[in-house]
Nucleic acid binder design. Structure first.
Lengths: 262, 262
DNA sequence: GCGCATTCTCAGACGATTCACAGAATCGGC
DNA sequence: GCCGATTCTGTGAATCGTCTGAGAATGCGC
């Protein structure tokens, strides 16, 4: 089976192209062991994509393809969080949730759901501390949500605040507020995710392909230069008229760092 | 086809145009044994070129020419990293990836791909921390990427930060930044790779042929004096107005070393 | 259902980079 | 000190990568 249903333009960078990111692992269980995540999805390519991305966060991932196995797995391995597709072959996602709750009452769940199905069914989930993401999602988003869940559940040691800071630029993941030098900046959803990704990897060159893979949803099939475009947008809002923080590494990608004193 | 289940550390640095670099081996597995790399490519000359270069890094290399054998090899020898040509005779590169993932979920993969094929096929690959390089590539680039993957995967003991230092000259592989005496220096992509190669082999004479083989892509057909030209560029940016670090060994090549006190 | 916000494509402009060529400078041997 | 070989570097042209404006398409809130 193929791992990637994706079709995308990646960057056309001759020399440097992609460079992987930091193995974050800045979330860990209280005893220091890696966070355990259970991914439940019957679409193999998607499950693979997710598990790759989550492993890359330094988490321990186990995947299951249906509700029954998921429940068994949860019982056995006691995950710190669950990623659960609401559409499963054998049973309904909410059904799984209910049973899960009976087994492991405190584990936070991140639901994956089709966009139109959100309506009445998923509402109320967030009240219980759970969260959801609509397909097609971006990996940045899934990871961010999962981090949020883990942080709030207390399962993971809170090494990580929801504030990202690079120089005088501050991004609040909870409120989605961004400011530079104390002055608020309005960003669109995409701009926000792009900036978050950059700020989570300060002083590290991120290739256009990486950015695309991470910030855009997995089914994005467009031109790679959206990345250039959004970098351009961000610069207008963040760097305009002050020492720049977003830098281009020609042929390699982009990086963000505190503005130079000079 | 080409199946070289050999395993060797390079030791001797032969003559001329070959790669006679340092037997680096500064990356090793946690238990101290050499890093194991699986190269999967059906183009024999390319596979040979790669395996020579990687062996010379002190790594243990095994090469396979098709997907099926590659999977078998991966299962048997449990490599620490895989170099995978996306175009294979029997099966698609992504197919191989997916199966590989199921066998050995955590092994990082470096993809080799034609430049124009990058577009829609490679997407999603960098998401899991994997990386890719477009053909024609330079050996320096492949090795650097592979190092990056190994370093981040944790398979290799982290003896090696992404910082290269020679005297007061510092090169950061993550941010692609270079500075001498604390002052930032802007380098182009080619200059950067050349300097990286020099700095990885301090106090060692590197011939123009070696440099060409290593820093320029394998299909470069131009004049050999590009090397002189780029050395000249580097000197202007690095050595100008201070004790020189880049030295010419007439008739032999170039070397870099900390500036003399005198 | 209307209008504003957002996302994205396309294509031209611009600047940076790479490289060939050729003459100038330097070195080493005699 | 002279000569040939080697290395250095200025010039310029072609190419490549990035940036950005204009506007079409889509989505979202009211």
């Amino acid at each position: 089976m193929t791992t990637t249903p994706i079709a995308t333009t990646a960057s056309a960078a001759p020399h440097a192209a992609a460079k992987a990111t930091a193995p974050a692992a800045d979330l860990a269980r209280p005893d220091g062991s890696p966070v355990r995540v259970l991914v439940v999805d019957d679409e193999t390519p998607l499950a693979d994509l997710l598990s790759m991305a989550l492993r890359y966060e330094g988490w321990q991932v186990r995947t299951e393809g249906d509700g029954a196995s998921a429940l068994r797995a949860a019982r056995e391995s006691r995950p710190d969080a669950v990623v659960l597709d609401v559409m499963l072959p054998d049973m309904d996602g909410l059904e799984v949730l209910a049973r899960l709750r009976r087994e492991t009452p405190d584990v936070p769940v991140l639901f994956l759901t089709a966009k139109d199905a959100v309506e009445d069914r998923i509402a109320g989930l967030t009240a219980g501390g759970d969260d959801y993401v609509t397909k097609p999602f971006s990996l940045e988003e899934v990871v961010a949500r999962l981090r949020g869940l883990l942080r709030r559940s207390g399962a993971a040691a809170v090494r990580n605040e929801s504030l990202l800071t690079v120089g005088d630029l501050v991004l609040n993941e909870d409120s989605h507020e961004v400011s530079r030098g104390g002055v608020g900046i309005h960003l669109t959803a995409t701009e926000f995710e792009l900036l978050r990704y950059l700020m989570r990897n300060p002083r590290r060159v991120l290739s256009k392909a990486q950015i695309l893979d991470r910030v855009w949803s997995y089914d994005f099939g467009g031109q790679a230069n959206v990345v250039e475009l959004y970098i351009s947008y961000l610069r207008r809002k963040i760097d305009v008229g002050r020492p720049p923080m977003i830098h281009t590494r020609r042929g390699a990608g982009y990086l963000i760092k505190p503005a130079e004193a000079a």
